Simulated assay, not measured.
Amino acid sequence: MSVEDTAQRARPGRPRSEQSRSAVVRATSELLHEIGLRAMTTEQIAARSGSSKATIYKWWPNKYAVAVDAFFSEMQADSPDPDTGSARGDFTIWLRGLFHFYTGPSGRVFAQLVGEAQFDPEVADELRDGLIRTRRAVLEAVWDRGVERGELRADVDRDVAIDLIVGPALYRLMTSRGALDDAAADAIVDAVIRGLSR
């Protein structure tokens, strides 16, 4: 253990602070599912979590930032980096996880968050910086591994390739057109990989 780690562990109040932070994220998730993003207030988050508003604002600038954190925690469980040794396998497992997330209790709330981001730049910033960039980093790693192994074409723009995989999922979520199941995820990845393989 480093000196820095020891100092952090010894710092008074640290375990309690981490416990409070987790309680805030958990309370936010519950409220999002129960009453929705717009109706939820920072006061309600504070009351549900047992934390003060000051504690909440210590970590997040607003309720939208807390909501993004809550969604990131949920999405992490459904869309990890599988690293199967195959780009097709990695993309398929990741997209299946995303579809499971979208069709679960959090999907409707996530759609609200995306919808709100179209009208509120603050929400858009939190969503992009706190959630989308982090999740996209997983797909960038999958793409880079595929290129290094010679599975995928190095002359294809990585961002465009990732858009081709993620885009249909978000389109289906927002428009309710097309299935969001394992078969659909497999078909999307198969179609994209056929065009991007070496």
Rank of each mutant, 00 (worst) to 15 (best):
P12V: 10
G150F: 05
Q19T: 09
L196M: 10
L98R: 08
G50S: 09
T41H: 08
R96F: 01
D125R: 13
Y171A: 07
R133F: 09
G97N: 00
E122T: 14
A54L: 08
F119G: 13
F99I: 01
R149F: 04
A7H: 06
V66C: 12
A191F: 02
E151F: 06
G178E: 10
Y171M: 11
T134R: 15
F101R: 04
H100I: 00
I132R: 11
A185W: 06
P15C: 03
V189W: 07
Q8G: 06
V114D: 02
P61S: 06
R135W: 02
A141R: 14
V24W: 01
Y57H: 13
F71Q: 12
R48A: 15
D69Q: 12
G13V: 10
L196A: 09
D120M: 10
T6W: 07
H33W: 02
G146L: 04
G89Y: 06
R198F: 05
D186N: 01
D155F: 04
G195H: 05
L180D: 07
T103K: 07
D129L: 15
F72Y: 15
F71N: 11
P15I: 01
Q118T: 14
L98P: 03
G89N: 08
E18M: 11
F72G: 14
A124P: 06
V166H: 06
V68H: 08
R133I: 06
I132N: 03
S29L: 14
R38I: 12
F119C: 10
I56C: 03
F72M: 13
S2L: 12
L37Q: 09
R198T: 14
V123M: 07
V138H: 13
A46Q: 00
F91P: 06
V109N: 05
T175E: 02
Q76G: 08
A54S: 15
S29C: 02
F71A: 03
Y102V: 05
D190F: 03
A183E: 13
I162W: 04
F101H: 10
V66W: 00
D125F: 13
G195R: 08
A191P: 03
P121T: 05
D129N: 15
I35Q: 15
D90H: 01
V147S: 07
D159Q: 10
R198L: 12
G167E: 08
D186G: 05
M75Q: 11
D181C: 04
V142I: 15
G85N: 09
D78C: 12
R9Y: 09
I165F: 05
A70C: 02
V156P: 03
I165Q: 06
E34Q: 14
T103N: 01
A124C: 01
P168H: 07
R16K: 14
L32N: 12
R149A: 14
A137Y: 03
